[in-house]
Amino acid sequence: MALPDFLSKDKLIKQGAEARVYRAEFLGKPAIVKERFPKRYRHPALDEKLTHRRTTQEVRSILRCRKAGISVPVVYFVDYTSHCIFLEEITGSLTVSDYIASIQQCKEQELLRLAEQVGQILAKMHDEDVIHGDLTTSNMLLRCSTVDIHQTDLVLIDFGLSYISALPEDKGVDLYVLEKAFLSTHPNTEVLFRKLLEGYAASSKKSPAVIKKLDEVRLRGRKRSMVG
C-alpha cells in the first residue's frame, strides 16, 4: 500500500527535523503515526542505518517503560521499511506544559503535587536505565487515570532520542535538559522544579549519584569537558 496515501496531508499534526507526526485511525482505534522521513542531506546508506536504529530504539524504550509500569503509549504496529511507528493516541489529554501555564498562580498545591509525581516517574524510568533524551513538559501528558477517575495518569511520550544507560552522568544530563527546558518554558518556577527533584530523590535508591552529577553538569553544561 502506498503509505503516503494513508498519511494524507490533512492528518499531519506536527513536523519536526527528525519525523512527521500524523493523527489517523488504525484498525478502528485513534492512533498517532510517527514517520521518520528520509533525510536528503545524509548519505543514503548512513541515513537508512541511523533511521532504522532510532526507530528500533524508540520502540525498545517504550516497551521497557511499560514493563516497569510507567505509562507510555501502546505500540500498535511498526513498519521498518517506511520507518513508521503506529502508537495509541492518548485521547482527552493535556500536556503538562499547557497545564502549568493554565493554572500558574492559584493552585500552587496541585502544581507542587504534580511536580513531585513527575519526579517520581522519572526516577522509576531512570531505575530501568532508560534515558529519555528529550525531557520537556510538552513530552509529558496528563490524562484521567484508567483505573481511578479521580486520579490523573502521567504519560511520557516521544522516546525518539532515548537510549539505555546505567551511568549517573547520562541520567544527570537527562535531568539537566529538563531543568533548562522547564525553567525557560515556565519562568519563576524554581520552587516547582526543586519539588520535582525532591520527588525524584525520594523514590530512587540510585538518586544521590545522579543528583551529584546534576550539580556537576550545571557548572559545566551538558557536554563533558574534553580537556586533559
Binding site: 517504550i62 511499560r66 501502546v74 505500540v75 511498526v78
Partner: peptide, 18 residues
C-alpha cells in the same frame, strides 16, 4: 506492575508489535 499502566490487551498488543 505493567497492569497498573494499562489493560491486558495493551500489554499483549505491545509485545506482539515489538
Amino acid at each position: 506492575q505493567e497492569e497498573k499502566c494499562g489493560s491486558l490487551l495493551d500489554a499483549v498488543v505491545c509485545r506482539m508489535a515489538t
